[in-house]
Design a protein around this nucleic acid. Sequence first.
DNA 1: TTGTACGCGTTATCAG
DNA 2: CTGATAACGCGTACAA
Lengths: 332, 332
Amino acid sequence: MAGIKEIAKMTGVSLATVSRVFNDSPLVSPKTREKVLKAAKELDYRPNMMAAALRSGKSRIIGVIVPEVNNSFFSDIINGIERVVSESGFNIIISQTHELQEKENSALDSFMKLNVDGVLMSISKETTDYGHIQKLIDAKIPIVFFDRPPSLEAINTVVLDNYLGAHIATEHLINNNCKTLLHIAGNSDVGIFNERKRGFLAAIQKHETEVSYQITELKSDATQDLKHLENLFKEHPKIDGIFAFGDEMAIHVLNLLTTLQLEVPKKMKLIGFGNAHFSTLTQPTISSIDQENAHMGELSATLLLQNMNKKQRPTTKILSPKLVERESSKID
Amino acid sequence: MAGIKEIAKMTGVSLATVSRVFNDSPLVSPKTREKVLKAAKELDYRPNMMAAALRSGKSRIIGVIVPEVNNSFFSDIINGIERVVSESGFNIIISQTHELQEKENSALDSFMKLNVDGVLMSISKETTDYGHIQKLIDAKIPIVFFDRPPSLEAINTVVLDNYLGAHIATEHLINNNCKTLLHIAGNSDVGIFNERKRGFLAAIQKHETEVSYQITELKSDATQDLKHLENLFKEHPKIDGIFAFGDEMAIHVLNLLTTLQLEVPKKMKLIGFGNAHFSTLTQPTISSIDQENAHMGELSATLLLQNMNKKQRPTTKILSPKLVERESSKID
DNA sequence: TTGTACGCGTTATCAG
DNA sequence: CTGATAACGCGTACAA
């Protein structure tokens, strides 16, 4: 392993020229360039990014902040991000917040110390204070938010149209002859879950003459939630269509329905949200709303790279979810 | 945001003294230290890790290489790693190989350019050439391999005892009255799958008077594989216990069995490997072998940190898998 | 206990 | 097109 100094010595050219070669400067003759590159191979040259970063102010590192890596939604996104940025020669450094504001603060702090060139982040559920984000913005570090943007002005965001997704899911149930709908809603403190609820309500309203509905928002205690749902199904036997705010919840509901002998999709139709892998592993398979996870990652990364090259005006990209019909919502 | 220079100016002490404060040098009087720390707060001091890294040769970055982030096994491990290293003030940079040797090479190359202080990796299925790893070793960068170590001498590894896990799973089936066992084996090019097969065979041998068995190794084409299994079940109706090499395969088998009206666990008992989250979401829930994913990550990270502090002699840690009994293998 | 001065490996500026 | 040299921000002998 060698640095540019050794190469300069070996080839007899100056440090500056060697540096120019590796920075694709046009100010170097083809034959010197070749000579340098050859020496680089022989000496197994590896640029020291730390030194380059120090001098240039550019680390070629992009910071990524997600709530959890262990969540197929976010890891799909990471895949998308990686695909794009690695093509441009950047490294990504990933931090998890575990939905904690404190972790989010310290992650951003680390990023600044590391001189990251840009940040991609999805804020945690708990985050209410945006001081740490403001610091980043003040430091002129480009940021793109995905999936869960903060409520700030003039920021770059890539989000899914959750409202539309819920609308599609709900209409799908209605189109498939459901008359009494239930929406199992997620924690309403989370923006995207609220959007889904709004989308559900809008679809209901559009078809208000045809259907009736009900909404239940669950707490975090799973076993109690399921008990609650069981009672709800018993009290309201007319319910024949369920839109769950997420796929994992949909699976739990499916299991509950099976236990209660409420056959899916014969007696009860069910649709989730997120198009998680395991939605294809159940029996019946569960219909869902696909959110093109990897695409969201790619788009965010592309937007960030653009901003890193040249300050753009804040952009918001809204992805359109798509219906994925499976067995759980089939008309028989 | 400020550097040590500004702090020196504000407090009237020298750069060296300020530097000493942040490096916890004992050679600073308490009151100077206090003065410096106070100024640091006021000026919102952020050390420039690039500069520190350049100067000290330590980046405080640890490189992590996994085949896929989008795999709950590896993301659990990442969680474990993060927990440990972040406590020691390190950042992790994650690269995925997507099971490609080429990606693995370039990831390690990036790590060297970035001057990572250590590497944690699980080699990809495709990797056969260890030149890139040797380079790392030559550069004296500490490495710990987890889950899938390369066949090299004198390396640090943290692995699961796959042999034992398979043995436990198989004996569990036998103890629960299975007489004719089937092992659905994974690609035998992958070391851990081979270990599982060996464990299965060993358990069979131990009980050879009581049981008969069969092994089928699947190809990569899922639909064809399932067809093959279906035929197998029809030809061998006596099979009453299945040990699948992984949980996802176990789910597919479960679905197939349900379709074939082979009731689980009444007519057929089933156990997987890996204790994936979705094993708890099926009906019936699927028994499995837990491999303490996060713990493996923690252990690997701890071992790496030890090696970074002081060269140790190569260590191999072997984790013991544990049986997780669920409905799919219950005796009725 | 504190300060001075040099160097880490690279890039940028200027002069040639 | 090429070379000499300063500078990036910090750590650390060495001197005081």
